[in-house]
Design a protein around this nucleic acid. Structure first.
Lengths: 223, 223
DNA sequence: ACCTGAACACCGTTCAAGT
DNA sequence: ACCTGAACACCGTTCAAGT
C-alpha cells in the first residue's frame, strides 16, 4: 500500500486519461463492471481515489471512456466493396468481435442506452449502406438493420453471459433439463436429442445470419 | 421512520416472501435495479434491513424471486393450435410483453445469465414445438429458435433502455446526427430522410419477425 | 497543476441479542 | 420463530488542504 505522496517526482509516470482507462479496461475485463470501483481502480494505479477525478469527472465518465476506447477499434467494411450480403456479415462479425474481446464491458455497452448509441451510429451507417445496395426501399432498410443489430445484441449477450469460450447456452439448459420431470419440455428433449455431434460444432452466429439474409432477400432484397 | 419493534403484534401483517417480493417489484419497476437496495426495500416495508434475510437469503435471491414472479405470468401459446408462424409470433409477443410490463427488471433478466435460464426453458419449448411443426430438421430448429430469442432480447433491450413507450432508438440517434459534420454518416442521412411519417408508425417488432419468418421459410420451413 | 485525506451518505451481510 | 441493532468492510463523491 506504499502510495506516492503529493506531486509526483520528475522520473515518475504522471496520471493520464490514457493510463486510467487502460487500467480500468483491464479491471473490467478481469472482474466485470459489477466488481469495478473507483477505489479499486485507484489502488491498482497506486494512487489516491480522488486523483482520478482530476482526469475524468466520475465513474460514469470512466465507463463511457472505456466504451469509446473499445468502439474505436471496430473495423467496419468499406462501402461499395464486394457483395452486400458479405458486407452485412462483415459488420456483424466486427461488432461481435468487439463483444468477444471484452464480454464484461459488452454487457454494460449493450444494456446501457447511452453507451450503446456510440457504437450504434457507426454500425448502422455500414448496415444502411449495404442494405441500400441490396435495393431495399428506405423503410425496409431501417427494419432490416434493426433486426441485424438486435440479433447481434441478443446473441452477444448470451455469449458474454455464458462461460468464456462457450458459444451456446444449450449445454447449460440441457443440464437443467435432466433434473426435471421427464414429461416436461417434450419438444426440447426431442429436438436436442436429435442433434448429432457435428451439428453442435457449427457456428450458431453465422447460422442466424444465414436466416436473416435469406429473409431480407425474401422480403425484397436482390441477392 | 416509526418502525415496529420486536415480534409483531397479533393484528399486524407478518413479513412474508410474497409481501417482500411484491414491494421489491414495485421498487425495481419505479427506480430500476441500480437504485434498488435491501435497505431501501426494508424501509419501504417499515422493517429492519435484516428482517428480510429471514425470508430470502440475500439480494440475489430477491432478484431471482422477482424474475420467477414475472416469468410465471408468461402466457405462451398451446402446442399444435393454429399455424406455426402464428405460434412463433405468439411466443415472441408474450416474451416481449413481459419486457414491456417490467422494463427495468427485464434488463437484469436478459443481461444476467442465471436469471435468463428460468424464462429460456419455457420460451424455447414453445418455439421448438412450433418450428418442429414447420417441418425443420433438428439442427435448423435450434438455430431458428436461437435467432428468435436473440432478436427478442436485443429488441427488448433497446426498448427497455429507451424512454418509456418509445419503440425505436432512432429519434435519439437522429438528434445526435444533427450535431455532427454533414459529410459523416451519408447512408444514415439518406435513408432516414427518405422515411415518411406513416413508415415511422409501423410496429418495428413485427417487421423484424416478418423477416425472420420469411427467412425460416427460405431455409426450409413449410409455411 | 496535480494529488491527498478526512468526511458524508450510502451499500450488503454477519453475528449476537432481544421478545 | 421472527425481528432488531450494532458492526464490518465496502461504495461514489464533495470539499478543503497539501506540495
Amino acid at each position: 500500500m506504499a502510495r506516492r505522496l503529493g506531486r509526483p517526482k520528475a522520473g515518475q509516470e504522471l496520471l493520464t486519461r490514457q493510463r486510467i482507462l487502460t487500467a480500468a479496461l483491464r479491471l473490467v475485463d478481469e472482474g466485470g463492471v459489477e466488481a469495478f470501483s473507483m477505489r479499486r481502480l485507484a489502488a491498482d494505479l497506486g494512487v489516491d481515489p480522488m486523483a482520478i477525478y482530476h482526469h475524468l469527472p466520475g465513474k460514469r465518465a470512466v465507463l463511457a471512456g472505456l466504451v469509446g476506447l473499445v468502439c474505436a477499434e471496430l473495423r467496419l467494411p468499406a462501402p461499395g466493396v464486394g457483395a452486400w450480403p458479405e458486407r452485412v456479415r462483415a459488420v456483424a462479425r466486427a461488432y461481435r468481435g468487439l463483444v468477444l474481446a471484452h464480454p464484461n464491458l459488452a454487457r454494460h455497452l449493450i444494456a446501457d442506452a447511452e453507451a450503446a448509441t456510440v457504437a450504434a451510429l457507426e454500425v448502422n451507417e455500414a448496415l444502411f449502406e449495404a442494405l441500400a445496395a441490396a435495393g431495399l426501399p428506405a423503410p425496409a432498410i431501417v427494419r432490416a438493420a434493426d433486426l441485424v443489430v438486435d440479433y447481434i445484441h441478443g446473441f452477444a449477450l448470451a455469449e458474454a453471459a455464458g462461460p468464456v469460450g462457450q458459444t451456446s447456452v444449450w449445454p447449460e439448459l440441457v443440464a437443467r433439463l435432466d433434473e426435471l420431470p421427464h414429461e416436461r419440455f417434450p419438444a426440447l428433449r426431442r429436438v436436442l436429442g436429435g442433434l448429432r455431434e457435428d451439428d453442435r460444432r457449427a457456428d450458431p452466429f453465422e447460422a442466424g445470419l444465414d436466416i436473416i439474409l435469406a429473409g431480407i432477400v425474401a422480403v425484397g432484397g436482390t441477392p
